[in-house]
Design a protein around this nucleic acid. Structure first.
Lengths: 350, 350
DNA sequence: TTGTACGCGTTATCAA
DNA sequence: TTGATAACGCGTACAA
């Protein structure tokens, strides 16, 4: 079964053709210094001998890998898997492979993953930070060696790197403003960990909108959690038990928004009548829940694509380029979960 | 910015300590032949000098990679991303990395991905076949070299490899039988591509259940598609236009089932009253749709985990082991979308 | 218990 | 346009 024939190398091809390995190496890469016919002959022989290049050997010698490392929290989340799809697409079409590692939102795993990626000498790194990461020194091993690091979505300003994300502040503002326009007076907010910029910014947007429209800020209407389904139910329960329950909810993700709607409905609350709800992410569930969820749409896949392109661009530019922060557009998709008034000028998403 | 200090190698450590590179190499790996103190000293110096092992060099030399290649259709599907999570978890805890490639369900991309993985000399491969792959010769490059290949979920019997999957036939049977027990007489089936075993088997299970319960088989009740949302709506429309519309539906995935339910509800059809529905996969949407969707639950993550373990086991066993086919259990999760009768003995899922 | 010396497959450098 | 040779960083057979 196991066929341990030795690998066919460029030496074998060289020998067969009575040329030097150098020539073969170059011919296979269409190097300009090699004659057209030589190239043709070499490639033909390579095919005949079933030669397969060894990417590892090439990387070792040239000190360049065609691999991009990725660190994300959990792969099995709609937003993340879209992101990765974008990364893969951009990377592959530029001839790069992608090694994916999951931090499970734990700082320690993030550090361990960074080390693994370094040991594999990846050519660049794309990171969406773990929930509670506050120390960023594990990224300097890359930066110090000139290996590009690009943060995506969950970024930090404390490291001088490229960043790709969205304007979470204005998205939070838009979402909240929309609820206010729908007549909500007491708007609750499901906030995520304030260690991460995205959740901080969304909350800032929420607060700014309240202030802008001169609504009071009530701290009992803001909850903090990791925004999973259980959190959504739990915090909805908590809010409904207040002496003055909210009439609007802006959740920093769809998962919590959806479970909050489900809980509220079970409690006899009408959505959007009693409670108007806006989520964040435009996950698949947002069109399935009844009523369909108004939400902020991310260009997740584009973020991945751009992050990968950015890594590759940095890698291929020898000269030092200043770090960029790229912000993609978000869109408020208005669906029934927040629509109390007949729509005039607002566009209703399907 | 770019810090081009040369890499610290085992030679540098050796020189610093006046020992040989061999000793360093072994000490870092806790080789038994090296004295305790030497090990301690070497490791200390390695840390001090910020030595980082070069996994590529090691792989090149030892002809063994700590990398597992994965080929799947699309990463941004709930089932697939759970699968990958399982693969990653098992692989990482055994010290392996994972390179993920997407075939986009295209045969050509699958072949190209296999080549890339081979060129990167992965130590093993996990594959979930693209929709229309009929030729499997691109996997022989691995098999011929003794590189383990494990098929997962979408498998084939035409290659002698390990397989990890579920019993799709019995799952299809169970789903259909359940609908029959709920009093359905005309049960439709959304089938997937019959090139792939999983959809063939689900349909076989459906047909077997009809036969077993002496219900007629009506070809106009079976549709074929790639089972996306549009397909679900389109085929539901088609079915409702029949002179005798179905009173039950078994869809080979949840995506199509959910969109079919949505369409049916829009048309004034009551679910499960007029139409009882069962899906497949237990995607997150299945608990969000109203009514909640009865479905077949896969152990997706376990499948990934087991597939990875299987690859690693094969890789580490020198001797030739016969190929195994591992079938994991599925469960019919009964929810409201199919429940017409009051439940007696059946367990109702949340 | 430790060291010497070579090779993994490729590419860079310099020379022809 | 082509070739000879060294080097990338590490592992290991063999020697000591």
């Amino acid at each position: 079964m196991k066929n341990n024939k030795k690998e066919v190398t460029i030496y074998d091809i060289a020998q067969e053709l009575n040329v030097s390995p150098t020539t073969v190496s170059r011919a296979l890469k269409d190097h300009f210094s090699i004659g057209k016919d030589t190239i043709k002959v070499v490639k033909k022989m390579a095919k005949k001998m079933e030669y397969r290049p060894n990417a590892m050997a090439a990387s070792l010698r040239s000190n360049k890998t065609q691999t991009i490392g990725v660190i994300i929290s959990w792969i099995d989340r709609p937003f993340i898997s879209s992101l990765i799809r974008g990364i893969e697409e951009a990377a592959n079409s530029a001839g790069y492979n992608v090694i994916i590692t999951q931090s499970n939102d734990l700082y320690e795993k993030e550090v361990a993953n960074a080390d693994v990626l370094y040991n594999n000498r990846v050519g660049g790194v794309i990171v969406s930070l773990a929930m509670e990461t506050k120390d960023y020194s594990h990224f300097y091993q890359f930066i110090n060696k000139g290996i590009p690091v690009v943060f995506v979505d969950r970024v930090t300003r404390k490291v001088d790197c490229d960043r790709v994300g969205i304007d979470n502040f204005s998205a939070g503002f838009k979402a909240t403003e929309h609820l206010i326009e729908q007549g909500c007076k007491r708007i609750a907010h499901f906030a995520g960990s304030q260690t991460r910029n995205i959740y901080r910014e969304r909350k800032r947007g929420y607060l700014a909108a309240l202030t802008r429209y001169q609504l009071p800020v009530d701290k009992s209407l803001v909850t903090y959690s990791s925004l999973n389904s259980e959190d959504g139910r739990k915090h909805m329960e908590q809010l409904l038990n207040l002496s003055q329950p909210p009439d609007g909810l802006f959740s920093a993700n769809d998962t919590a928004a959806v479970s909050a709607i489900q809980y509220a409905k079970e409690m006899g609350i009408t959505v959007p009548g009693d409670l108007a709800v806006v989520g964040f992410n435009d996950d698949p569930v947002s069109t399935i829940i009844d009523p369909p969820l108004t939400t902020i749409a991310h260009p997740a896949r584009d973020m991945g694509k751009i992050a990968a392109e950015q890594v590759i661009k940095k890698k291929e530019k020898k000269d030092i380029v200043a770090s960029q922060t790229i912000e993609l557009k978000t869109e408020l998709l208005i669906r029934s979960s927040s629509l109390r008034k007949k729509a005039h000028n607002i566009r209703i998403a399907n």
